[in-house]
Amino acid sequence: MIKDNQYAIEVDGLTKRYGGLLAVNNISFTVRKGEVFAFLGVNGAGKTTTVEIIETIRPLTSGRVSILGMDVTKKKRDIIRRIGVLPQGFNSFDRITVRETIQYFLRLFGRSNSEADGLINLVDLKEKSTEQFKTLSGGLKQRLGIAVALVNDPEVVFLDEPTTGLDPRSRREVWDVLLSLKNKGKTVFLTTHYMEEAELLADRVAIIHKGKIIAIDPPAQLTEDYDNYIILTLKSPKGKASEIIREVGFEPINDKRGDIKVRLEHTEDVQRILNAVKEGGASFHGLDVRTPNLEEVFLKLTGDSIHEETAGERLAK
């Protein structure tokens, strides 16, 4: 374990079991102070379990985790005064207003009610400060959750899927808040489904898959490391394009927009596929050829497509 105080979070050999299920399998990593660290993984990969162990919410099975040099199993009460947590799907008291919610959490930390104004401004909720929690939209609730996570001026902020379920506009509003935290030099531990979010905000990204960390690097480094192939995208294909591509020896992937993506090792393969599609009587409305982004790196590493959890999946848990 590295004892250098440049690290806000140190995780060494962390393992978590739920009965016979191995949720987190002997993972180790560190997060530097002032760093925005993104934790990527599909549902059930072990990211929320990991972050909740670090936040002191959930006990670990084995290994060692420390925050700001304090062991999470021994110094919970000291740790929670120095960290801020936005749990997944932040909720609060239905009939309490935005300002009152912030003031409530300020009082829990023994801080002055007068600090509420600064936090309300930070998350841009001034116009909603007298609205009750139950009347807020999902995006506003998340922004309030971020303000609540900051009431104790924490050194490390944990944000567990802060933009999941939000519309694109609300997501961008939350990103603005996260960027302001980054600019303030806070250490931010971010778990997310969104590659775009991780690419935009994170200094480093860790990819967790089936309880193991399979890659950890800055986003640019990750894409560069896997820059040894190209992605061909056929937009809005018609006919049997997928079958034709498979027949010429490539594996097409249908994305959620209905486009077909093919990973290719050589540029000359692009022409081969286009010719085969044309000869096979299929068509498409456009094409794109480029190097992989973080989402495609993730796909290559995990073999799983990352996606947002649906309400049904959430209920089924």
Binding site: E55, T56, I57, I80, R81, I83, F93
Partner: peptide
């Protein structure tokens, strides 16, 4: 059920 307790567990209460 709403997860408010989970949030409270990260405060000094």
């Amino acid at each position: 059920q709403k997860g408010v307790f989970r949030k409270l567990s990260t405060t000094p209460i």
